[in-house]
């Protein structure tokens, strides 16, 4: 019973880690550029397809596809930021929503055309399959790997944001973009780099998540609500907020579907309503 509970808890943490990895970029674009990017899931999907293509067409090993998925989606993100997104930073949120939902549907159509409507398979390396015993508990190796990767990335992100000169420049741009610009910080370049980083992490999350979330052309729509929930509940523009929110949502979603499957799908929405009533600006929100 207890072991079972811990197993569910662990699956929830792994699921939440993945949600965090994908959603952190959405938190960045919302907190930094004040941009509502509903197409964020499309970047995660792109990372997934890059991973699958590299493995099935060119026989690249799974682990080697991960950095490539990151770089490929970050590059596409940077190009789209320079050419399209930038024009809408000052636009209304409705315009941004219409633009990015349009982009989402285009991404879905393009993915269906290129790879067909079916689920994509991923063959994990033997090393990451099966179970390992940790303190007498049987835990999925791949889920353990997922959590480890996300923990490492979270520490790297925290270091980047808190300890480096680049991170201080990003924080100054979030605090007051005009003043940051006026004291010599190239805010536009910071926006581009952060957008690329956020989409790159989404792409990495998409690739890592094929085994857990699946991968087909409807991916950006199917998980849009989850990504938005993480940012809405956690608060935009921070690392800690979305991390806590993603873990809470992941655990409750998995536990709900396991213990009360009849109402499992409703649990996270109930949770969202309750959390947003208690913390209207998000758990660690900077902006109301």
């Amino acid at each position: 019973m207890i072991a079972n509970f811990i197993g569910v808890l662990f699956d929830g943490i792994a699921y939440g880690s993945l949600l965090f990895l994908i959603s952190i970029g959405l938190s960045v674009t919302l907190g930094l550029m004040n941009f509502v990017n509903l197409a964020h899931g499309a970047f995660a999907m792109l990372g997934g397809y890059v991973c699958v293509m590299l493995m099935t067409r060119w026989g690249v090993p799974f682990l080697a596809t991960l950095p490539i998925a990151f770089i490929a989606t970050a590059t596409v993100g940077a190009v789209l930021e320079r050419t399209l997104y930038r024009r809408l930073y000052k636009a209304s949120h409705l315009d941004q929503v219409l633009f990015s939902i349009g982009l989402t549907f285009m991404a879905i159509a393009a993915a269906t055309y290129a790879w067909g409507p079916s689920q994509q398979p991923v063959r994990l390396p033997d090393l990451l399959r099966g179970q390992v015993e940790v303190f007498g508990l049987q835990l999925g190796t791949y889920r353990l790997f997922l959590v480890a990767v996300v923990v490492a990335i979270t520490f790297a992100l925290a270091w980047l944001m808190e300890k480096t000169r680049f991170g201080a420049q990003v924080r100054s741009a979030v605090d007051d973009a005009d003043v940051a610009n006026g004291v010599g910080i190239n805010v536009n370049l910071i926006f581009s780099l952060m957008f690329a980083l956020g989409t790159g992490l989404a792409g990495l999350g998409g690739a890592l998540g094929i085994d857990v979330l699946g991968l087909d052309p409807t991916f950006p729509l199917k998980y849009m609500v989850y990504f938005l929930l993480v940012v809405a509940v956690g608060g935009a523009g921070t690392i800690r907020g979305p991390l806590v929110a993603a873990l809470v949502l992941g655990i409750f979603d998995v536990a709900g579907k396991y213990y009360v499957p009849q109402v499992g799908a409703f649990i996270i929405y109930t949770l969202m309503v309750l959390l947003l009533i208690a913390f209207p600006a998000g758990l660690y929100g900077r902006r109301a």
Binding site: V174, V179, V183
Partner: peptide, 16 residues
């Protein structure tokens, strides 16, 4: 004054 709330005094100076 244009202070950055999330930057320390030191970071205000070293970043620029």
């Amino acid at each position: 004054r244009g202070m950055f709330p999330s930057l320390t005094v030191d970071e205000h100076l070293t970043t620029v």
